[in-house]
Write a protein that binds this DNA or RNA. Structure first.
Lengths: 138, 138
DNA sequence: GCTATCTAGTCTCCATCGGATACTAGCATA
DNA sequence: TATGCTAGTATCCGATGGAGACTAGATAGC
């Protein structure tokens, strides 16, 4: 239990061919997609793209995130090379998280998701209302 | 347990202001982002954007998906108005799933994620190897 | 002097989530 | 008669995620 899963070196079955394919469960790209299609990762990346932030600042800005998930997600993002962690030996110690160049390329792919949610929210809620009404009398 | 969670009409606290903000846990846009930043939803949308498909076809194409998650995710996507379900009364019954116009707008926002995973996989794996090596020697 | 507070987490407990497996119906095929 | 097809559902159990207590070491307040 001292070892969080992300530290474990998972046995990595080599892909049969060299074409990356997210639809193959064992493909490394699929593992990356699994990690990246994650609400906390998306929210953290969007915030850090806007500037370096400290742990508790992120915690305050992301409504509903637990310390455990924030800590876990940041560690994964750091391992994936998307986020950089810098500990400053003050008392108490402060830790700064910033986005890396690689992380910035992912942010470009991820921010449209936030935009989409914010612009199409009305259409989604309308669809849900329609669906629920049909279910009740259907 | 007969009622899956997506059917429940969750008590929906009204947002204090009218600005959608995914960082607020109670904001409807956040709920949408939570649903949409999901690996199965992403993979299903990408496949259906390419053409109408049947349940078992999707199951075969998406490596590692369980029937339960496929069925649940399709139902959610249908409720959100992103996917249309058509049951054809053959024997045995066949069911066709297709993407809606709204779903197509989301697909445009989601496909870059797949592209990103497939193009940056090498950089991510390199970062992971670097991180793991550092961890081992402290 | 004693207590509270700040930081960035970790630890433990528990509810929920997701995966594996078995099962359903009704007809076609071997 | 047994087997397979369809599109799921029911059930069990392990993995995941959230709530809250707890850690260190220095500082500020009473």
């Amino acid at each position: 239990m001292g070892e969080p899963r992300i530290i474990e070196l998972a046995p990595r079955p080599l892909p049969k061919d060299l074409t990356p394919d997210v639809f193959v469960a064992e493909c490394p790209t699929r593992r990356v997609l699994d990690r990246v299609a994650d609400k906390w990762a998306v929210l953290i990346l969007i915030l850090l793209a806007d500037g370096t932030k400290r742990f508790n600042a992120l915690k305050r800005m992301i409504g509903g995130v637990s310390q455990k998930m924030l800590s876990q997600t940041l560690k994964s993002l750091e391992r994936d090379g998307l986020v950089a962690r810098r500990a400053i030996p003050t008392v108490p110690v402060t830790v700064e998280y910033s986005i890396t160049p690689l992380g910035r390329t992912l942010h470009a792919a991820v921010d449209p998701l936030r935009i989409w949610a914010e612009t199409h929210i009305a259409a989604v809620e309308a669809a849900q209302a329609r669906y629920d009404a049909e279910q009740r009398q259907g």
